[in-house]
Amino acid sequence: DIMLEAVQNAIATNEVNASMGIICATPTAGSAGTLPGILSVITKQLSLDRDAQIRFLFCASAFGMVVANDAMIAGATGGCQAEVGSASAMGAAAAVEAAGGTHQQSSEAFAMAMSNLLGLVCDPVAGLVEVPCVKRNVIGSVNALTSADMALAGLVSKIPADEVISAMKSIGENLPSTLRETGLGGLAATPTGIALKMQIFGQDMSIDK
């Protein structure tokens, strides 16, 4: 199954990162599983050779540079929407290009993928890039593949890519610091999240202290 293979490879990449292995930040370490999840699937489905795989990465990085220059790609500044959201949108655009779509279709896929993840906060339990980060990369990969499919089928985003990026920046700037990689809000601030942090670090660092 295409989606399950994307899930498998997205998780595998992030587990390598969590175990201090070598990964490629695409665009960050916390979102490094999203693009591999996508690329592993379309390489098989579209029989991409090495040059085509490299073009996929160039296309993804080009869109990523726009996001980095016009908004942000770090969870500490814009929440997980800036990390997994950006990675998912980058992958969607590149998947369309790899499938022979037009530049405009790549832009539509990018816009739809990023729109779907706007507002996603960065709330790593115990401040570690594991929970819920690893599984959010899965969502990023699957979201990218479905957005690419929609764009190739002729669907368009009512809001153009540049404006979606601007919206993401505005949302990120308005997120409270507790939801921007500090590990002090969201899932990290739940009773179980705090208990896990105490288990790992041996101290209670909840926001009520």
Rank of each mutant, 00 (worst) to 15 (best):
E83R: 07
Q104Y: 13
P36C: 09
N17Y: 13
A111P: 05
T28Y: 02
A74V: 01
A82E: 05
T28G: 03
C24V: 15
G37H: 04
A52G: 02
A109G: 07
T43P: 00
I22C: 08
F58C: 13
L39N: 00
V67R: 00
F110P: 05
L57R: 01
A76I: 07
V66E: 15
N69R: 13
M72Q: 10
C59V: 12
P36E: 02
S40H: 10
Q45W: 09
C80Q: 10
A74N: 09
I23H: 06
A29T: 08
S61T: 13
D51T: 13
I54P: 00
Q81Y: 06
A82Y: 00
L57D: 01
I38M: 11
D70A: 14
T28M: 03
G91K: 06
C24N: 14
L39Q: 00
N116K: 14
G79D: 09
C80I: 01
A25T: 10
G30R: 02
A95I: 04
V84R: 02
V84P: 03
G101F: 02
F58Y: 12
H103N: 14
T34P: 03
S19C: 12
S107K: 14
G91M: 12
E97A: 14
S47H: 15
A32G: 11
Q104R: 13
L57I: 11
M114Q: 14
S107F: 07
A109C: 04
I22W: 06
G85C: 08
I22F: 12
M114V: 05
M112G: 04
I38G: 00
G91H: 11
T102S: 15
P36A: 06
T43W: 02
E97G: 01
I42S: 01
V67M: 12
S88Y: 02
S40F: 06
A111R: 06
A71Q: 03
V84T: 12
P27L: 05
G75L: 01
G101S: 02
I38V: 14
D70C: 12
D70H: 13
L35R: 02
E97H: 14
A94G: 03
L35Y: 01
N116E: 13
G75T: 07
G91A: 10
S107G: 11
S19L: 14
C80F: 09
G21I: 05
S47C: 11
A87M: 09
E83P: 01
I73G: 05
L57F: 00
G21F: 07
I23E: 12
H103P: 04
A68M: 10
I23V: 15
D70M: 13
T102M: 08
D49C: 07
V41Y: 04
A109W: 03
M114W: 04
A89E: 08
A71N: 03
G85R: 03
A74L: 10
G33S: 12
I42H: 03
T34F: 09
V96C: 08
G30D: 07
I73E: 04
A93V: 10
G64H: 09
M90N: 03
G78H: 00
L48P: 04
K44H: 12
S61C: 11
A109R: 07
A98D: 00
A95C: 14
F58H: 14
G21V: 09
T43F: 05
V96D: 07
G37P: 09
D51Q: 13
V66Y: 12
N116I: 04
A93G: 11
F110V: 02
S61Q: 15
A29L: 05
A98Y: 01
